[in-house]
Simulated assay, not measured.
Amino acid sequence: MRLHDYWRSGASYRVRIALNLKNLHYEQVAHDLRTGAQADPAYAVINPQRLVPALEMEGQVLTQSLAIVEWLEERHPAPALLPTDPDSRAIVRAMAGVIASDIHPLNNLRVLVALRRDLDAGETRISAWIARWIGEGFAALETMIVRHGGAHAFGDAPGLVDCCLVPQLYSAERFAMPLDAFPRVVAAGAAARGLPAVAAAHPDRQPDADAR
């Protein structure tokens, strides 16, 4: 498998966590979003949306991080990232969707660039924008984790919610978002981050990461 990603992409980070939790080997191909590398015509052939991640395998290309993780779950079901019963699976997907559908898309790089370039938003307004959407999403997740969490965000094993939560926490911390109001969110993230497979997916540990 070949994963097209970028070290600081939250969506790519999700897929790296899932691949690592399932102990699957993959080759990484980096596309620096800051320089517009994803717009290269050669990459557009692979992913017409010109976004990361994209996963190449067996002559096929999969895009969209949650679709990729669901495919991994179906093709490589152990260890499981989704529970077995339909009700619990729906809850897990909803919790993941809070992040992947309602928080992350509003704060990703291309949206922030558009706010600065097209709407002339300054950094104070950008920071308020980021905090608003992370805060609203984390407030909902806090309640959901209280209801459904255990040692991890859902139950006692790492799964799909953790694949989404860890990258979103990384983003919140990167933008200096206060997290005191979300103790269960923070605790679930800490539990997942303590796993070697999750730690290995951290942006700073990727081959294309900026030198520190």
Rank of each mutant, 00 (worst) to 15 (best):
D102C: 08
V166L: 15
F175R: 01
V161H: 06
R132C: 10
V15M: 06
G135L: 07
K22F: 11
D162Q: 08
I130G: 06
A153Q: 07
N108A: 04
A172K: 04
V15E: 07
R16W: 13
I126S: 04
R50N: 02
R75Q: 15
R212N: 13
F175I: 01
M177Y: 10
R147C: 10
P167Q: 09
R212E: 14
L115W: 07
I68F: 09
R93G: 03
P203M: 03
D87C: 04
R147I: 03
L165A: 10
P77F: 10
A78F: 03
Q64G: 02
H76S: 11
L21M: 12
P183R: 11
S101W: 00
A42R: 00
A190G: 12
I103V: 15
Y43A: 00
E56G: 05
T35C: 10
P105M: 09
I99K: 12
A199P: 06
Q206M: 12
L72Q: 01
P83H: 04
S171W: 07
V198Y: 07
G59M: 10
C164K: 03
Y26H: 14
R205Y: 06
F182H: 13
L112C: 08
A139S: 15
A96D: 08
L55H: 03
E142N: 08
E70V: 01
A200H: 08
A140V: 15
G122M: 12
L169D: 11
V98W: 13
V69E: 12
H31K: 08
L51S: 12
D210C: 03
H202E: 14
V45G: 00
T35P: 01
A188M: 11
L109G: 00
N108C: 05
F175C: 00
G36P: 07
R8I: 09
E74N: 10
Q49E: 06
L165C: 10
H25D: 14
L55Q: 05
V146A: 15
R117C: 02
E173P: 00
R93P: 05
R93D: 01
P183F: 09
W7Y: 15
A100V: 13
P83Q: 03
V198K: 09
L115T: 04
G122Q: 13
L3V: 14
Q64W: 07
A128K: 13
G189Y: 10
N20T: 08
I17W: 02
H152R: 01
I103Q: 09
M57Y: 11
W129F: 08
E70N: 09
V69K: 06
R14V: 07
